[in-house]
Amino acid sequence: MTRAAVAATADARTVRLRHLTKQFGPVRAVDDLTIDVLPGRVTGFLGPNGAGKTTTLRMLLGLVRPTSGTATIGDVPYGRLRRPATVVGAALEASSFHPGRTGLDHLRVYAPQAGVGDARAREVLDLVGLGPAGGRRVGGYSLGMRQRLALATTLLGDPPVLLLDEPSNGLDPEGIAWLRGFLRALAAEGRTVLVSSHVLSEVQQTVDDVVVIARGRLVHASSLDDLARLARPRVRASSPDGARLADLVARSGWTTAGPPARAADGALTVEVHDVPPAVVGAAAFAAGVELHELAGVGAGLEQLFLDLVDRPADVAGGAA
């Protein structure tokens, strides 16, 4: 009984896209997206610029009509939510402000529709660290302050679902670190938090799950851990005797990542996949190849991300 109740609440926070598609003239901006975004987790919604992230969010929020498919929050389309600000907080762009309005007044404008009073407006301003700037006109705000104000607006109605489009744009490193902790805390409270970004590294330390789209299509959806497992570690090795190193790589059957870098004096630097540095070192030692560099190169998560979003380009003939 209790379990069922819990499941029902959790479900009310689940964002669900089913075969969501949007055609703009000849361009299929979003193509058959089917995704579940779960409560209690921060989900990164990733893809290069123009991948269809914003259009997807706008369809989910009832601003753009899908060509086909559905988008729901707890099985209810956004347009049918009563008092949506108490269910979903969404920030789509950091520029949706009247420059002549103060930060506090911006929040007061929307407070009636979120069903809250001025006290809550001040509270969310403080929450995002804008309290002292609340009386200033938004026209004088920096991009980072506008991002914070946009975030404050989403929090007005204390919604269980938060959808944030590129929320760290314009934030300084300190602001990004703050945002990270803030979003983690919101998810820890059981909220559904979706954060879009065009750079994986920007949200890598924030998200639990990743959804990657490219050219409107889903190319990957998993937990961040599962994505990381897909990342192929690389080893960089360089030797003054380039010919012998190249020979060793060929004989060992290692796959190289990108073309080797040849120096004028015959030195060679190669990167190989799927082999631990120790194995490369041992093989070089056994073969008597002098190594001047031997290093494991990152987890390659960003590279994996780029590979994921580039892959359809090969099929589509490089539309970008």
Binding site: G62, Y78, G79, P84, A85, S95, F97, H98, P99, Q113
Partner: peptide, 18 residues
């Protein structure tokens, strides 16, 4: 027109989709 000029039409329709 100011709603379209300053793009506040987006939050307006988010808070009241009808």
């Amino acid at each position: 027109t100011t709603e379209y000029r300053h793009r506040t039409i987006t939050p307006t329709l988010l808070l009241e989709p009808r």
